[in-house]
Design a protein around this nucleic acid. Structure first.
Lengths: 160, 160
DNA sequence: AGTCATTTCCCATTGTATCCCACAAAATCC
DNA sequence: GGATTTTGTGGGATACAATGGGAAATGACT
């Protein structure tokens, strides 16, 4: 295998414009993460808890579906998940120019106008209204300062 | 390959200039640490608590992502990490000449102008504005002198 | 069927980032 | 101490990301 040229994780924040046809450039660094999964699109759904659209690879969504199958059909978490997540989920294709067209109704729900922000979050990503994202960052910085939240202690097995 | 001439750790401090195209020579000793991971780049992200850019190998970042997956999806520390760390993280490729191009917006955030300082910290490294780094060193020296901080006691199992 | 609106595909443009070649200074080797 | 290899640096050529617009395909509605 050739040396690692990029990760399969979603990184960084990209703020771009939505053109008159509703098209948006899907961040280049995200494209490599998607292409690494041999896919030409992602899955997006409306977050039940935040004013954002959540996104992930199709592969990951399939894994989530499989994990859900293991829960009891009557489990409330399962019903919630199936309704809130699968119920709003959509396939988002990425065209030959690396652009996508997030559905307008979903964008309206999170207050996105002509500008849109993609926020990489590792295995997933989020779509924000740019200003709302800034506010969230400011809140997080404040919470860190006051000690309301702290860095998680991660177990990096076998890592130097 | 000849005997190990260098470690896979990030050591020492390197201060260099940024050229007109935004390129910087990635410290030679760091390059061997990266090459030891069979990689052609690192991952950098903005520290949420200090005016610095943090850096590490892609391998380590992937381990962090994996460790994070083990936390509850609703854990606030997880959300914070994903937003603050992954949200600012970028893959930083190292070109054939051993140079990299840290994104200008991120450099602006930590006050870096034409000069940049790389600080090795073992498994990770940091990017500083050179003067800010000097100040930090002075503070640390003072804190050590007054007893405000002291060296940690390390358990070196099985070491001579 | 025919018209209209929307979506998808293809081509063009611009600015930026990356590749490649070149060279001088410094460190290392013999 | 002279030669060879690294390292840091510069610049032109090239490739790519982001964006815009036309034309073809798709679907809705009358």
């Amino acid at each position: 295998m050739s040396p690692t040229l990029n990760t399969n994780l979603f990184f960084a924040t990209h703020v771009t414009r939505i053109d008159g046809k509703g098209r948006v450039s899907f961040p280049a660094s995200f494209r490599t993460a998607v292409a690494a999964r041999n896919s030409q699109g992602v899955v997006i759904y409306r977050s039940p808890s935040d004013p954002v659209i959540e996104g992930m690879t199709i592969e990951r969504m399939q894994h989530m579906a499989a994990a859900l199958e293991k829960l009891s059909p009557s489990a409330p978490e399962r019903a919630f998940f199936e309704t809130a997540i699968f119920g709003t989920a959509q396939f988002l294709p990425i065209d030959g120019e690396g652009r996508c067209s997030p559905p307008r109704p979903m964008l309206d729900q999170i207050g996105v106008g002509a500008e849109i922000a993609f926020l990489g979050r590792g295995a997933t990503f989020q779509i924000w209204e740019p200003k709302a994202l800034e506010d969230r960052h400011a809140e997080a910085a404040q919470a860190l300062k006051t000690g309301a939240i702290s860095f998680p202690t991660l177990q990096l097995e076998g890592m130097v």
